[in-house]
C-alpha cells in the first residue's frame, strides 16, 4: 500500500448547476435516501401502523356503547390516531439522522439548509400519508363512513402538511436533547392545537355533509396554518439545528 494513492477527482467535478434545480435535486436526494433506508428496515412504517391501528381499536371499544356519541366523535378519533402515529414517525425519522451523526453530515453539505428541512418534511409527509392510506379504510369500516369523500381527503392532506411542517422543525430541535422522545409531543401538541381544531371541525363537516359555507372557515384556517408554519420553518431551521 502507500505510494500511488490517488484521490484527485476527475476534471468534470463540481459542475456549477442552475441553483433552483440543484435545490430540488438536494430535496429529492434526501427523500430518496429516507425511502431507501425505510424500505430496508421498515422500522418507521411498521411502528406507526401498529400504533395507529391499536389507537383506533381502543377507541372503537371505548365508544362502543353509544352509537350517537360514536358518530360525533368519529373525526376526533381519526385525528388523535394520526397525531399519535405521526409523533412516532417524526421521532424515528430524526433519530435515524442522529444515529451515526448523519445530521452533521447533512449540515456539512454545501446546500441551503432549508432544502434539508424540506427533504425531511417531504419524506415524513410521505410516510404519514402511507399510514393514513392504510388506516382510513379500516376506520371507514369500524365507523361506518363513506371514504369516497374528496373533501375529507383534502382535509387529511392539509392537516398532514401542517402537522409535518411543525413536527419536522420541532423534531430536529428535540433530537439535540437527551429526552427527545418525550420532548417532541410536549412541544408539538400545544402548537398544533389550532390545526387540530380546524382539521377535526372540517372533517366532521364533510362526514356529516354540512353546507360548504360552514366548512370553509376551517379549511381556510388549515391553509393559513400550513403556509405560516412552512414559512416559519423555512426561516428558522438553520438556527434550530446549529448548537
Amino acid at each position: 500500500m502507500g505510494g500511488e494513492v490517488k484521490i484527485a477527482t476527475s476534471p468534470s467535478k463540481a459542475v456549477i448547476r442552475k441553483p433552483t434545480s440543484f435545490y430540488l435535486r438536494t430535496v429529492w436526494a434526501i427523500v430518496w435516501k429516507d425511502l431507501a433506508a425505510e424500505l430496508r428496515s421498515r422500522e418507521l412504517l411498521t411502528s406507526m401502523l401498529v400504533f395507529a391501528l391499536l389507537v383506533i381499536l381502543i377507541f372503537n371499544f371505548a365508544l362502543e356503547l353509544d352509537p350517537r356519541a360514536r358518530f360525533n366523535a368519529a373525526s376526533g378519533v381519526l385525528w388523535v390516531t394520526f397525531a399519535f402515529a405521526g409523533t412516532l414517525g417524526l421521532n424515528r425519522s430524526m433519530a435515524m439522522e442522529k444515529d451515526r451523526g448523519c445530521l452533521d453530515g447533512l449540515l456539512l453539505a454545501p446546500v441551503d439548509r432549508s432544502a434539508i428541512f424540506f427533504g425531511k418534511a417531504l419524506s415524513n409527509l410521505f410516510f404519514m400519508l402511507i399510514v393514513e392510506a392504510i388506516v382510513l379504510p379500516i376506520y371507514s369500516l369500524l365507523y361506518n363512513i363513506n371514504l369516497f369523500n374528496p373533501g375529507l381527503i383534502a382535509v387529511v392532506l392539509l392537516g398532514s402538511i401542517g402537522y409535518v411542517a411543525v413536527g419536522t422543525l420541532l423534531a430536529s430541535m428535540a433530537v439535540q436533547t437527551r429526552t427527545r422522545d418525550v420532548l417532541l409531543p410536549i412541544l408539538l401538541f400545544p402548537i398544533v392545537i389550532p390545526l387540530f381544531i380546524a382539521a377535526v371541525k372540517a372533517s366532521a363537516g364533510f362526514l356529516q355533509s354540512l353546507e360548504m359555507s360552514e366548512i370553509w372557515p376551517w379549511l381556510n384556517l388549515l391553509i393559513v396554518y400550513d403556509l405560516i408554519f412552512l414559512a416559519v420553518a423555512f426561516m428558522v431551521f438553520d438556527y434550530v439545528v446549529e448548537e
Binding site: K33, A36, R40, S41, R100, C102, D104, G105, L108
Partner: peptide, 10 residues
C-alpha cells in the same frame, strides 16, 4: 468527525 456521519441502513 468523531462519528462516521453515515446511514446504517444504506
Amino acid at each position: 468527525s468523531h462519528q462516521p456521519l453515515l446511514y446504517g441502513d444504506l
